[in-house]
Write a protein that binds this DNA or RNA. Sequence first.
DNA 1: GCAGAAAATGAAAACGCTTGCATCATTTTG
DNA 2: CAAAATGATGCAAGCGTTTTCATTTTCTGC
Lengths: 338, 338
Amino acid sequence: MKLTPPTIKDIADRANVSISTVSRALNNKSVVRQDTRTAVLEAAKLLGYEVNVFARGLAGGQSMTIGVVSREIGCTLYDTVMQGVIRGFAGTGYSPIFIEGQSGEDFGGEMIQKLISRRVDGIMTLGGDDTFPENLLNHLPEELPAIVIGKSVKGWEKRCVVTDNFGASYQATQLLIENGHRDIAIIRGDMHIQDAISRYDGYCKALEDANLKVLPDLIQNGDFLAHSGLMGIHALLARGKPFTAVVCGNDQMAIGAKLALQRRGIRVPEDVSLIGFDDEPLSAYVSPPLTTLRQSGVEMGRIAAKGLIDLISAGSCELPLLACELVERESVAKLRST
Amino acid sequence: MKLTPPTIKDIADRANVSISTVSRALNNKSVVRQDTRTAVLEAAKLLGYEVNVFARGLAGGQSMTIGVVSREIGCTLYDTVMQGVIRGFAGTGYSPIFIEGQSGEDFGGEMIQKLISRRVDGIMTLGGDDTFPENLLNHLPEELPAIVIGKSVKGWEKRCVVTDNFGASYQATQLLIENGHRDIAIIRGDMHIQDAISRYDGYCKALEDANLKVLPDLIQNGDFLAHSGLMGIHALLARGKPFTAVVCGNDQMAIGAKLALQRRGIRVPEDVSLIGFDDEPLSAYVSPPLTTLRQSGVEMGRIAAKGLIDLISAGSCELPLLACELVERESVAKLRST
DNA sequence: GCAGAAAATGAAAACGCTTGCATCATTTTG
DNA sequence: CAAAATGATGCAAGCGTTTTCATTTTCTGC
C-alpha cells in the first residue's frame, strides 16, 4: 500500500487542471465540461484515488457517515436489521456507525454530541420504546435527515420503516379464530417496546371484530425471551381460565410456551394452538414446526438505508409499509369439537 | 442544538491560552502545567466541547475509527460478536465501521481503499475461511494495528481472538465416549470456515486418543444451517453404518438433526445422543434440551475491542484463548448396553 | 541573585478538501 | 461586430485540528 494515498492535487497535475476543477468533477457538479470531467475521472481511477473523508468533512462537504443509534440491542430481529443496514450502505460510500445507548442514557446529551462530533450526514434509529426514539429526535437539528426503524413516530410517519405489526397480529389472531378458537390467550412481549404494543393491539382488535372479549385472565406479560414464554404458560394455566390457543409476541416465547405445554402433557396443536412472530431460523425445526409471521430484518435495514440516502440526496423518500408473511406450519390446528 | 459546535479556539479564548495549549491539554500530553490543564478541561466541559473528528483526522491525529471487516455475515455467532464489538468500543471514543465483503471480493482492492479513505486507526477482521483474513492482512500497511477474530492466523497468533474450538470439540466427543459411545458420527459445518475445521479436528483427535477409528461413513458435511443437519441425518442413515451419537458443528444443525431423527422414529437421546455448539437462545427450549458447548460472541467482541485499543495505545495486547463451556442438558445419554 | 537548563506556551504551517469570487473563454444578442 | 451574457476554470480562503519550532517562563544550583 502506498503510504501517502493520492490527493486531488495529484489528479489535478495529471489531468492538467486545477484542484477546484477536480473537486467539482469528482462531486458531479454541473459546471464542469464533459471532456474535462472524463479526463479527471480517468486520472483519478488511474491513480487509485479515494477521497479523504476527513478533509471533505472538514471542508464542509459531506461526512459520508451515518449514525445508527439504538437502545440496547439483544433482540435477534435488530441484529439482522443491522446486517441489512450494513448491506444497504455497502457500495454507496456511506459508512454507518453504530451507537448503542444504554437504557436510561441521556439521549439529548452524550449521544447527540457524538453524532455532532462525527458530523454525520444522517441518522437512523433502531427500535422503539416509550420514550425512544422521540427523545433523540427532539434534540436533533431540523435539517438532519433521519429515518426511524421499528416504530411509527408521530409526525415522522413518512420517515418510519415499520412492519405492519398490528396487521400481522390481527391476521394471526384471525387465523386462530377461523380455526374455531374462542378462548385465545396472548403472551405479550415487553410492553415498553413498540412491537409488543402493536401486536397486542392487533390481537385485541381481531378479537373485538369477532365479537370476542379480551379477557385479562388470558393476557400474560413476557419479555421476548423463551423463558418468559415458558413461565407465561404456567401463569396462564395457574389462573384456571381455560384456553385453546395462544398468540405469542415472538417465536422465542412461542417455543418456550410450547415446551411448557408439552411438559404439562398438553399437546400442541391438538390441545392448544400456538402462533409466533419473526420466523426465526429454528422455528421450522421444532416439533411441531411453528406457525409464525415472518418479517425480514435484513429487508428493513436495506429499505431504511436506501430511504435515508434518498432523503439526503433528494430531500424525500418513499417508504413502504412492510407486510408480514404468514408462514403456516403445524402449530395451529382446528379446534376439536368437544 | 448549537449549529456551530464550540471549537478549541473557543476554549482557548475562555481559558486565556493558545489553541496549541488547548490541544495539548485535551490530548493529555505531558507538557502542560497541571493548573492550565484543569482550566482548559473546565472550559471545555463548560462549553460542551466535542472534538471534531474530521479536523483531528486531517491534521494527522487519530481518526478514532476502527474498520471491522468481515466476509458475508449471516452466522448468528458473528451477529453477537458485532454487538460485543460495538459495546466494547462504547465510551472509548472509537467508532467501529463495518465493512462486509461479498464473497469473491477482491480484498486487496476496494476494501483496503475504503479503510484508507477513512484513515482507520486500526482494524478487526471477523470470521475466517480458506483465504480470509489472510488476503486482507497481507495488503495491510505494517504499522496498522489489527486484531483477528475467529481464526488463528499464522504469524498473527498474538493478535487473534479465538475460542478453543478444537478443545471444545475434543471435549464434546470425549463426553460421548465417556458415555460409552463408540460409533460417533459428525455433521460438520461449512469446511471452508475455520470454526468447522477446528471442530472436526477436535473430533478426530478425541476419537484417535480413545483408539477409535475416524470412519468416512460417519462424516457428513453441512453448512451450519438447520436444514443441513436434517439432511445430514438422512444421508448418514442412508449409508447403513450404524451410529449412536452425533457431534454437530453447531446448534442449528443439531436441532435439524434432532428433528430428522425423531421423524424417523429414532429417539434422542435414548437411541442417538446429540451434541451441538454455540448454545443458542433456543437450544435450551427444544425437546430434549440440547447439550452444547457455549461460547459468547459478545465476549469475543468485547475482548477484541479492548485488545485493539491496547494495541493502538500501548503497542501490545494480551488476548486470552476463550474456552467453551460445556452445557450439559438432555440430548446426551449413556449408551444402552445392547 | 544570576546563568543556564528545563518546562511551558505560543505562532504558524500543514493536513486535503470545498466553495465563493475573480478571471478567462465562448456564445449569444442587439 | 462590439457588448453583454453565459459557461468553464483557477485562485485562495477557510474548515478545526495537530505539531514543529521558536519563544517565554520557571526552576536549578551556585
